[in-house]
Amino acid sequence: MSASSASTSSSPGIVSSLITWLFSSIGKKVVVALTGIVLVLFVIGHMLGNLTVFFGRDVINAYAMHLRDLGPLLWLIRLFMLASVAVHIWFTMLLWKENLAAHPQKYAVFAPMKTTIFARTMRLTGLFVLAFIVFHLAHFTLLLVDPGYASYHADLHGREVHDVYRMVIEGFRNPIISLFYIVSLALLAFHLSHGIGSLFQTLGVTDKKMRSYYETGAGILAWVLFAGYISIPVSILIFGLGNGVVK
């Protein structure tokens, strides 16, 4: 049947239709996915960078220094990262709000049906990761947790640089802090074990067959990240990494 009314005459303005897309259910999801990708990439890169701690003081200090030397570029990156986290969280909160409104009354009997615990706890794990990031920045970047870190200096080929190596070693010698890191990293792994697999579905770059591959892959990556990260506090706390170097 012909349905004249079912046809929008001319396309609306660029801005308005962009906004419509952005705040549509699917648009919001895609934004979360895209920012999610940025964050994942950061987490991967950051882990690799951190692992240089195993190659000794100079290597990680050099890595940190090179980062610093980026100067304005570094600030651009930081800004971009900050924006990504902010948008990621903002949109997930929007989704959260709508989803609560759409499902006001829960069932008397709870049945998970296929939905994993990781998927169900995305918001909580996410928020916890947020809390972690805040602490972590205060800890190693803003050096608020132990202002003493600021005075750590090391000599790198005749150049005096901030001794990140010592900061990390001493930072993780504190068992409470290490434990907090390990727990947070576990929750991040939770978050990602659903998140990474999920984003392919959100972006529509999957099908019936591929989905299971993506999901296993996501799980593996998430827990590899976990292992990579905690290897640092664990080696320092238990295997005394850096004992020889840092008294």
Binding site: M1, S2, S5
Partner: peptide, 10 residues
């Protein structure tokens, strides 16, 4: 679906 199209047009 054909019916729905007509319902949409009123």
């Amino acid at each position: 679906q054909a019916l729905s199209a007509q319902i949409a047009t009123g």
